[in-house]
């Protein structure tokens, strides 16, 4: 997984929050890298640590309540141990973020234009007039009609899709090299989602930025991502190219995610194949493999699953899996048991 041309390099990232109930290990030893012009999809359920990771990359965790360790390097600049002012100057300019719900993520009291102008002027020493021209230009580029008029509107006067476009315009206003999109389309309708995904794809090609898309929706990942990282209980449990993850997944949790999802591109299955149980509490992460209480194949590990955390080991070229089962057995189970069930139609 370490790439020589990596633009973003995350090594053994740990983000822990001390609470009254105990230490919450939201992210616990995450390693990945990403090149310019490439898209990484981070998939996981609530509490998997995917959003905490994104805030960590932007250096947005408060030192007073979060313990961040490990290494995040953006084009050679370390973020974890850098002085806060250095990281602040990188935020918005070299790395930017798109949030899930653009209505709550934009300030209700300021016009959309004002919020873009503010983002632009904090990193560029230009007059308000120049910044406003830039804001109008950006709104036009993300496909907002009549941008010179809409620039003076407030966020609540925009429709959901237009708001997310404005949010993207704001994130891209300083031409960042790394863009992180945290559930960028979850709050949107499906036709609007298609528009936004399309826009993000086009803009990424235009700006040649590195893109991290964080989502629980495997469909969105399949649309955008080159590589996919599946997170569970604060750890990466499977990593590989999008095609590998969708066609030859080897972790039982990934199987479960695929089996939980009805698909329009296949015939109707009789039954969905969900994962039993509930996502783990991050305070009492299960011992050994965090997934073992929900794993249908736990018995095959000979008790190892309950005691030992499996290593994230290479299974094929660029394919990493954190599972105690031998590679051959995993491949066999996928091909002989799981895949046929997923593809069975009624």
């Amino acid at each position: 997984m370490p790439a020589p041309d990596a633009f973003l390099d995350v090594r053994d990232l740990r983000i822990h929050f001390p609470t009254d109930d105990g230490l919450v290990k939201s992210v616990d030893g995450l390693t990945f890298s990403l090149a310019r012009g490439k898209t990484l999809g981070i998939v996981g359920e609530s509490g998997s640590g995917k959003s905490v990771t994104s805030l960590g990359i932007l250096g947005l965790h408060n030192k007073r309540n979060a313990r961040v360790s490990g290494e995040i390097s953006l084009d050679g600049t370390d973020i974890v141990n850098a002085d806060p002012e250095t990281v602040r100057k990188m935020r918005g300019r070299r790395m930017a973020m798109i949030f899930q719900d653009p209505l709550s993520a934009m300030h209700p009291y300021y016009t959309v234009g004002h919020q873009i102008i503010e983002a632009y002027r904090v990193h560029n020493n230009v007059s308000k007039a120049v910044a406003k021209k830039h804001a109008i230009d950006m709104l036009g580029r993300v496909g907002i009609p009549q941008p010179n008029r809409r620039v003076d509107d407030y966020p609540h006067q925009f429709s959901g899709g237009m708001r997310q476009r404005a949010m993207i315009a704001m994130a891209l206003s300083c031409d960042p090299e790394l863009l992180i999109a945290d559930e960028p389309t979850t709050a949107l309708d499906v036709t609007v989602q298609a528009q936004i995904l399309d826009l993000m794809r086009d803009l990424q090609q235009e700006f040649n930025s590195a893109l991290i898309i964080i989502t629980h929706d495997l469909g969105v990942v399949a649309e955008l991502a080159d590589d996919v990282l599946v997170m569970y209980g604060g750890k990466c449990i499977e990593y590989g190219s999008a095609v590998t993850i969708f066609e030859e997944p080897e972790h039982p949790y990934t199987w479960g995610l695929l089996g939980s999802m009805p698909r329009l591109d296949r015939g109707v299955t009789n039954r969905l194949l969900p994962i039993s149980g509930n996502p783990p509490s991050l305070i009492n992460v299960p011992s050994g493999c965090a997934f073992h209480p929900r794993c249908a194949y736990e018995a095959r590990t000979g008790g190892l699953g309950t005691t030992t955390v499996p290593e994230l080991a290479e299974s094929g070229r660029g394919h990493l899996v954190r599972c105690h089962m031998p590679v051959a057995e995993r491949k066999r189970i996928w091909n002989e048991q799981v895949r046929p069930k997923l593809e069975a139609t009624s």
């Binding site: 947005l60 935020r91 918005g92 949030f99 709550s104 993520a105 300030h107 503010e118 983002a119 990193h123």
Partner: peptide, 12 residues
């Protein structure tokens, strides 16, 4: 959320 956005923009 909008405070998080403001920080993510790199505002002081």
């Amino acid at each position: 959320d909008y405070i998080r956005t403001a920080r993510a923009k790199g505002l002081r």
